[in-house]
Nucleic acid binder design. Structure first.
Lengths: 156, 156
DNA sequence: TGTCTATTGACTATCTTTGACCTAAAAATT
DNA sequence: AATTTTTAGGTCAAAGATAGTCAATAGACA
């Protein structure tokens, strides 16, 4: 297994153990895994970003640390965040898929709806010969539109 | 036997062994068969495409892999997929035949029905002097129409 | 013998890992 | 209190490890 995957699993195990929060020392962790300290930052950036449902804070200097928090948000908070802040004028397929997965993780959409959304913004559907820039712009609009409809129905 | 056939068999053996899923390393497999790594992609494209009932995912970089999943779908799921997603406005004869074969493989149509459908969209039937583009468009419509009738009768 | 299928290899894209250099905060020193 | 030193964590670009694409070539088969 990849080093980055091992580190990811290690952190996730710590997170599930007890609370939704862990604190760790970058250098210690790096030494434990026998890797460069910056490897830890790589793992944080690629697996514990806000898109993945986590927040991180840190401090340098003596007694420094990295704290990772699993975010808990209400459905509507999450939707509003995505619509108003996260998604701007452009969204790549990878980002879109990640966001959609998160919605499923949080039971905001069903498995079928997830697949449907993925199909809508996927490369198969958007496989027309226009520049990526335009596809990404279109994807952003489509995503926001879909999210709005979800937000609307959730108003109950 | 052709190299690509050997590779196909090899992968299918791995798939039937246990689960409906295998993971492999492109370079290792290529080395095992003493061929160019891209040959693996060729086999995947020509024998493990969605049309053939498989899905593939992969990752590049260190620890990269290719995962092949045999898709299990209900008859109606398959039909709906073909009608709404797979077949667009155009369908070549080869594609059509492949899809029809798959329907037979999955016992969605009988052998006789398969031959009937193949006959309907085949070159003998459509051997009139119009451009391929138009034939393909017509074929797509014919296929969807036939599939709809199958879907309807399966409603039971 | 011409057309379809298979094979290869050069080039490209993407993901991971590392290391050199940078910055911030705390601790020690003056 | 100000300054220096030490102790963290942050950034970024380069190197390494895979997989993907495509066009040219070779081979098989009707």
């Amino acid at each position: 297994m990849r080093l980055s995957d091992s580190i990811e699993n290690f952190i996730k195990a710590m997170l599930s153990d007890d609370s939704a929060e862990v604190e760790l020392k970058r250098n210690e962790l790096a030494e434990y895994f026998g890797c460069a300290p910056s490897q830890i930052n790589y793992v944080l950036a690629t697996r514990f970003s806000p898109d993945h449902g986590y927040l991180t804070e840190s401090r340098r200097g003596g007694g420094g640390y990295i704290r990772i928090v699993r975010v808990v948000q209400s459905d509507s908070q999450r939707l509003m965040y995505l619509i108003n802040e996260r998604i701007g004028d452009s969204l790549s397929e990878e980002e879109a898929l990640r966001l959609i997965s998160q919605l499923k993780e949080h039971s905001i959409v069903s498995e079928k709806e997830r697949d449907l959304m993925a199909a809508a913004i996927g490369s198969r559907a958007m496989g027309i010969p226009i520049p990526d820039t335009m596809k990404n712009a279109m994807r952003a609009r489509m995503m926001k539109s879909m999210l709005m409809s979800i937000a609307a129905r959730n108003k109950s």
